[in-house]
Amino acid sequence: MEIIIIRHGESEADIFNVHEGRADFSLTEKGRQQVHVMGERVKNEFPPDMIWASPLKRASETAKLLSEKVGCSVQLEDDLMEFNNGIQAGLTFEEAKKYPEPTYLHDSYEDGESHIEFRMRVESAFSRILSSSQHRRIAIVAHGGVINCLLQSFYQMPVTKDYYFKNGDTGISFIEIRDEERVTHFLNDLSHLA
Rank of each mutant, 00 (worst) to 15 (best):
M1Y: 01
E2V: 08
I3C: 08
I4Y: 02
I4N: 02
I5Q: 03
I6Q: 02
R7L: 03
H8T: 10
A13R: 00
A13F: 11
I15D: 12
N17Y: 09
N17S: 11
V18K: 03
H19N: 13
R22C: 11
A23W: 08
D24M: 06
F25N: 06
L27M: 09
G31K: 04
Q33T: 11
Q34H: 05
Q34E: 15
H36L: 10
H36G: 00
H36E: 13
V37M: 08
M38K: 01
E40Q: 10
K43I: 00
N44E: 12
P47C: 01
P48S: 07
M50Y: 10
A53D: 06
S54E: 09
K57N: 12
K57D: 07
A59C: 08
S60R: 07
A63F: 05
A63L: 08
L66H: 02
S67H: 04
G71L: 07
C72R: 02
C72W: 01
Q75T: 15
D78F: 12
D79P: 11
D79S: 14
L80D: 08
F83Q: 07
F83N: 05
G86T: 06
G86H: 08
G86D: 07
Q88I: 15
G90W: 09
G90H: 06
A96L: 02
E101H: 02
P102A: 08
P102Q: 05
Y104V: 00
L105S: 10
S108Y: 06
Y109M: 00
E113R: 09
H115P: 04
I116M: 12
F118L: 09
R121M: 09
V122I: 15
S124L: 12
S124K: 15
S124Y: 10
S124C: 07
A125K: 07
R128V: 00
L130N: 09
S131Q: 15
H135N: 13
H135I: 00
R137P: 03
A139V: 06
I140T: 06
I140P: 05
A142L: 04
G144I: 01
G145F: 03
I147W: 10
I147K: 05
N148F: 05
C149L: 03
Q152Y: 05
Q156M: 09
V159L: 15
V159D: 14
K161D: 14
D162W: 09
D162S: 15
F165T: 10
K166F: 11
N167E: 14
N167A: 06
G168V: 03
D169C: 13
T170S: 03
T170Y: 01
T170R: 02
I172L: 12
S173R: 04
F174Y: 13
I177D: 10
I177M: 13
R178I: 12
T184E: 14
N188T: 01
D189V: 01
L190I: 12
L190E: 08
A194Y: 07
A194M: 11
